[in-house]
Design a protein around this nucleic acid. Sequence first.
DNA 1: GCAAAAGTGTTGGGAGTACACCCATGA
DNA 2: TCATGGGTGTACTCCCAACACTTTTGC
Lengths: 238, 238
Amino acid sequence: MIEQVDPDPFPFAVAVDLVVLTVRDGQLQVLVIERGTEPFKGRLALPGGFVLEDEDLLDAAERELAEETGVLGVRFHLEQLGTYGSPTRDPRGRVLAVAHLALLPDLTTPVAGSDAAAARWMPTAALLASPRKLAFDHHQILSDGVERARAKLEYSPLATAFCPEMFTINELRQVYEAVWGTELDPRNFHRKVTGTEGFVESTGKTTTRQGGRPAQLYRPGTADLLHPAMLRPSPARS
Amino acid sequence: MIEQVDPDPFPFAVAVDLVVLTVRDGQLQVLVIERGTEPFKGRLALPGGFVLEDEDLLDAAERELAEETGVLGVRFHLEQLGTYGSPTRDPRGRVLAVAHLALLPDLTTPVAGSDAAAARWMPTAALLASPRKLAFDHHQILSDGVERARAKLEYSPLATAFCPEMFTINELRQVYEAVWGTELDPRNFHRKVTGTEGFVESTGKTTTRQGGRPAQLYRPGTADLLHPAMLRPSPARS
DNA sequence: GCAAAAGTGTTGGGAGTACACCCATGA
DNA sequence: TCATGGGTGTACTCCCAACACTTTTGC
């Protein structure tokens, strides 16, 4: 990995940045903070922070997630998204950002323990529409994060990470519709989900919180890959 | 991204490591070097090196690829694979590895300009079978790289990156069989590839280098996503 | 002619879409 | 009773796996 003739390595600062997504009000929303210091003071940015001396990357991301959202005992999904290291991405010097993607259910206590500047949820659509709203290269990071989330809903049961502990098929469908920005046929969606082994498990309970006939409540299943996959309509189809 | 109260960032060394894959002798093979210095002296490792002060990550990976393989004017694919940053992954200190995945055609002049210790191709199967053959966490990186390559063959036309400028459908199928480790029906494969828009383009030329009836030669098409996707047999299918 | 690889036709099944239709609740 | 969402049945289509069969070369 390191050649004999290499010069001394240049020292980098390494931060973890977070794309924290949830579905609120039928929209895919992302957690952003308002920067309190230069550079980009007053601009919106993704939450994040430096990796500590003896800290693993995923641990650092989880620590930042806890600091920014106050999530405690909430089921969530966290994975590495990618690393952004352009020499000019931070005017203060060479800062490497290891971006992570977090998917959370809609917390009724949204941003409890944030110790950063005011953290809040914003719809991803509004932020992605204008590339200048976010500081640094965070527009690119957000864009990559949303695309990753969209792709993962196709072949993994990760949509359940956006749902509460128990959920109805209808609520799960609303997650897909919010993330993909499409409409799905409720009847076919129902059959597809309940027919895909390991996607959801019946709890035996029902709810009428959506109105109408009582719906069965499900919890996430054990599969980590969907067969067959959920196919999203339209994009690049003949 | 950086909070007001953050302490000074801890300085990291940042390296790019390369998973360079090709198909040789019907097998998926990877470029490895033999380490000439401690730690792990004499063990096999993935090629790589430190990122320079003003260098972008992808540029650093491309530079290392050129140094290790002597690729010149060869069509290849290069993408970021993931970042490995366990505090204990390198006994010398805190070294972050930004792994990249490179896919190359089988070069008749295999490892020309390598300036590292002896670089050579080895079958991935042999390396993946025993986790201790590679230094550092390179077994994990190789494993992730191979899995990424397998997945990408499904929904992208990237298999053509393993092929020469012009290739037959049969040669393309051998790439799939080597990477996936499965057998595919030549007749159905032919129909599938030629029927998927943007996958391959006819050149009008033919060859008999495989023996038998002359085969049409194709070049890579313009699509960057396959519709419908190539489905790999068996893994986790009912 | 014979072996070998290229390429086409055909058929049955699994999965997707569209949509008609019935079920169970609250108001 | 009606509105609302839950859930099933069905017909049509598309894609895929399997495999029979024809084509074009080298030896």
